[in-house]
Design a protein around this nucleic acid. Sequence first.
DNA 1: TGGTTTGTTGCAGC
DNA 2: AGCTGCAACAAACC
Length: 247
Amino acid sequence: MPEGPSIVILREETAQFSGHKILRVEGNSKVDLNRLLGQTVRSLRSWGKHFLIELEDASVRIHLLLFGSYRIDERKEATPRLSLGFDNGELNFYGCSVELIEEPLEQRYDWRTDIMSEQWDAGRALEKLQGMPGTLACDAILDQQIFAGAGNIFKNEVLFRIKVHPMTKLGALPAAKLQELVTETHQYAFDFLKWKKAFVLKQHWQAHRQGTCPRCQIPLVKAKLGLTNRQSYFCEGCQKRYIASDD
DNA sequence: TGGTTTGTTGCAGC
DNA sequence: AGCTGCAACAAACC
């Protein structure tokens, strides 16, 4: 469920509720759900992996984390974390993080950082990356302050596409490769969206959870690298580990 | 069958 | 003080 393109799909699937009043609220979320009752949905938005329900005097922020799920006009057996009833259907969330945002969304979120947004600013991302030469490539792609919406699949697929070893420091990358890292992360987001909608996302994985390099036909390396302890899949044959001059 | 995992936070321990 | 690593959450997938 949870990477940026999946949240865009969630936003599209729930568009029917925009402009409708919340007639019923239930759920085991710790936030005060009563205050949502009677409010009209101003807009349904997303920022990175965040799904945002903008109401009249607050917004609800849903983060599906790793295992979260949702149902539209149907229910699962489990108790919903948040269930919203409208005059034209219902929206149920399970196993997710729910938070209330009191301030205006424009104040909280910078959509230039969201890889799925029309306001995505590649130049700004590049500047941020240039300012952190010691950061590993595998950590940079997971940084939500730079690529909001990118996750572990992105990390593995983008580094494979641009033929960069996950342990390469940004400062060691040639300028053109750093630029490629930005453009391919953005490009992969829309490939992900297209393939997920067609139910063929996994078929297009070249490195993530794969055993053999499709370019070199040698075994891929599987290792937990970087600050995040997330699994990396990469090819030691074709993904180059650039070395900085001061290393 | 059960280990793994599209994620993040908070806290214990050092 | 600031880091690291783990628990917690909770469920589909191979």
